[in-house]
Design a protein around this nucleic acid. Structure first.
Lengths: 332, 332
DNA sequence: GTCAATTTTGAAATCGATTGCAAAGACTGG
DNA sequence: CCAGTCTTTGCAATCGATTTCAAAATTGAC
């Protein structure tokens, strides 16, 4: 005799209901192949015994898991960790959009995702598709991945040679908006603040440069953190050179770092110096003074990323999208 | 003849290596049952063909998934969504601690987790254990869950009648520290700011009350958001009653909301009014002015939560832990 | 009352791995 | 040279569901 410890299996429910396993399976899926009466009886018995299908067995047989991997990779963040509020915001919105579609989210660090290569992520982690947050060094890998059957979408910078579906805000437009603002404020000594090698930020940088049209200072920071920006700015202000009268930071967190440094050195914002961030992360509006910034709509981003990924999973290749951005003028 | 589309299976590798499936399986697990020579050959072939084991099949057979569900439930957050930087911080640290142990993270909203009841979450989502972030209304449910075989740990408030493993910072100590600070600053008109029904915040509140020892004002807010606190505080300041000279907010986000309101009404901080938050979330130190607050060590919290959960999965019931807290004095 | 059409049901194969057990092969000692 | 031990290997069962296909039950038409 076999002791039936552990959770009930479908066989048990079948026996209790006096039917066979396939009938139970169909009933639980609300299949039209089962008569309403039988269905109701089976569902009631399943409910009473607290039966739920074993997700792993179901996944195996169905060859589908209704689970999406979200791979987070920000080499420009300190410790390579997820810390920037903007990214959290994005992650939250993606999670919500997936939940609406009954999809679960598997959170992967880039490291664990990358061992073995992205193309094996599906069977390796048992997911149906992938959302990459941050495209940084992986552009070529994504191009390669696009030639496989792996459904994926990327949050990152738009590029003409992206053969994969990438979503990102209109960074060139963002850069231009900031240049226009500084121009209309009659600023003379502009500065761009950001790390090297971050594709999206470089797009903002380049477009700002083009639109600004004349010389400006470039202050490089090692990563996207508040501290790195503050320290770099402090060092710069102490260098003896005339202070900038307009700072465009590649993200809100960096803008806040720069602001802290300016304040420490007694430079008045916005009187002596304008500061503009990027992202419109939640902290931008709560900051004092409230931050002037370029808005990225993470809610829309999350929704579209998910929508496109679902399309890709269905087999329809999805096109890239460029999200609109606005300048949000606040107190800096 | 059968076309071999899709990813390779273990059988294919076995055939290519001229061995049987079990041998391949053992080789991939680095089992001592396989000779070194054979092992090396198999691994090489597997690598060359980009083979990775199918996670779902493996999960099913092993009855183990190396995946942990993190269930997020904060009814006190606006939209019931994950928005507070403190919780993000905690989530990030948990994810890291799990990654070290080669565990994956399945992110669940409380809603999707709760349909069907927590006790079926394991088979329903195919995970080995659960970390609950936020204990809010579920204390009794957790007590029930503790009587089942489901391994789980909770981030929340310590309680004497918690028969499950709950981790949380020492909220009573935190409340006391704030009271002591206000006392040493000779403050007279203290105020506590926070929502009702949030167990952890109520612990802070109660202990503050006991230690403070005299009357103080209580300002209730509908949720944990910046905006709710700011608006509540604005309304209070405009009521005509004398303004408080010390504010203890239940979280940093709320403290920042209160600060914004005080500033808007021209009340000088810290000259006219002291403000103390709770959490020491990353934004607290970046805020201007930098926020005085009670620190919760999310890194340690993440590490211990994970360690205890792993213990529970191994079958050792884990005891609750109370994490130490400090007062971090900054500019408010 | 018979036969075809339709609705329900169940037997058996399958998803892709892991593992218990038995057997084959290699070694050792007497 | 053979029995006994130890190392490697493979057969077959198993994990817990879904799905194909054929059989059984029901219905309807004439």
């Amino acid at each position: 005799m076999k002791k039936n410890t552990g959770p009930k299996r479908m066989d048990d429910i079948a026996r209790l209901a006096g039917v066979s396993k396939p009938t139970v399976s169909r009933a639980l899926q609300d299949s039209p192949l089962v008569s309403d009466e039988t269905k109701k009886r089976i569902l009631e018995i399943a409910r009473r015994h607290g039966y739920v299908v074993n997700r792993n067995a179901q996944n195996l047989r169905r060859r589908r898991t209704d689970t999406i991997a979200v791979v987070i990779d920000f080499p420009h963040l300190p410790d390579n960790r997820l810390t920037d509020p903007f990214h959290f915001e994005l992650l939250g919105n993606i999670t919500n959009a997936l939940a609406v579609r009954q999809q679960d989210v598997l959170l992967c660090s880039s490291q664990s995702a990358h061992s073995g290569g992205f193309e094996h992520l599906l069977s390796n982690k048992g997911v149906d598709g992938i959302i990459f947050l941050g495209q940084s060094g992986h552009h070529e890998e994504f191009r390669a991945l696009a030639r496989t059957a792996v459904p994926f979408v990327v949050w990152g910078a738009h590029r003409d040679d992206a053969t994969y579906c990438v979503l990102g805000s209109d960074n060139p437009l963002g850069g231009r908006l900031v240049a226009e603002r500084f121009r209309s404020l009659k600023r003379k000594r502009a500065m761009f603040l950001g790390p090297r090698g971050h594709i999206e930020i470089e797009q903002r940088h380049r477009s700002f440069a083009e639109s600004w049209g004349r010389a400006f200072e470039e202050l490089e920071v090692p990563d996207l953190s508040f501290v790195a920006s503050r320290d770099a700015m402090l060092e710069r202000l102490d260098s003896g050179k005339p202070a900038p009268d307009a700072v465009f930071a590649g993200s809100d967190t960096m803008a806040m770092g720069a602001l802290a440094a300016l304040r420490e050195r007694g430079i008045e914002v916005p009187a002596d110096c304008s500061v503009c961030g990027y992202d419109d992360s939640p902290s931008a509006v709560h900051h004092s003074p409230p931050l002037t910034t370029i808005r990225q709509d993470t809610r829309m981003a999350g929704a579209i990323l998910v929508e496109r990924l679902m399309q890709a999973i269905q087999g329809t290749p999805a096109a890239s999208v460029l999200l609109p951005t606005d300048l949000i003028v606040r107190a800096t």
